[in-house]
Simulated assay, not measured.
Amino acid sequence: MIVGRVIGWFLLFCALVLLGWDAVSSLDNGTWGFAVLGQRWYEIDQALGGFTLNTLQAGIERNISVDLWDNVFAPVLLWPAVAVFVVPGVVFLLLFRRWGGGRTQRRFSGKR
């Protein structure tokens, strides 16, 4: 359960970083808007000197299916990057939250 909460908080932290990045970018551009996931992934990829986005596309198209890339991955890359991390983060936090409130003392523990 704690692993799910940690993943949820990590995803929300990533969303907060992306939101800050969008805010700083909007100050440069003069207009407010959310960047899409594909754009942010490309910018991170270029900064680190990698080709993960192109490699992922080639691997999926060659080894799995071209339709999977065209119908699933490509549309997700056009979604706002903040939303891609906020939605699963909130879902993880709701699924793995503590359901009984805080810790309760056992009634019949034998210690008095």
Results as ranks from 00 to 15, higher is better:
Val90Thr: 00
Leu11Tyr: 05
Thr52Asp: 14
Trp32Arg: 14
Gly4Tyr: 01
Ala23Ser: 12
Leu94Val: 09
Asp67Trp: 06
Pro75Phe: 04
Ala81Asn: 05
Leu78Thr: 08
Ala15Cys: 08
Arg97Met: 15
Thr52Trp: 10
Thr55Cys: 02
Arg40Lys: 15
Gly59Cys: 07
Phe73Arg: 01
Val91Thr: 03
Val84His: 03
Ala35Glu: 13
Asn71Lys: 09
Val84Trp: 02
Val86Asp: 05
Cys14Leu: 14
Arg5Cys: 05
Arg106His: 12
Glu43Pro: 01
Leu94Cys: 12
Leu68Ser: 13
Val3Met: 12
Phe10Ser: 15
Pro88Thr: 07
Leu27Ile: 06
Gly38Leu: 02
Pro88Ser: 11
Tyr42Met: 10
Ala81Cys: 05
Arg98Phe: 14
Arg62Leu: 15
Phe85Trp: 08
Leu68Ile: 08
Thr52Met: 09
Asp67Val: 09
Ser65Ile: 03
Ala15Pro: 06
Leu27Asn: 10
Gly110Pro: 04
Pro88Ala: 09
Arg5Lys: 13
Ile44Asp: 13
Phe73Trp: 11
Gly30Ile: 01
Leu37Cys: 07
Val87Tyr: 06
Leu94Trp: 02
Phe10Asp: 14
Asp67Thr: 12
Val82Met: 03
Val87Ser: 09
Pro75His: 09
Trp99Asp: 15
Gly110Lys: 01
Ala15Asn: 07
Ala83Glu: 06
Pro80Cys: 05
Pro80Ile: 02
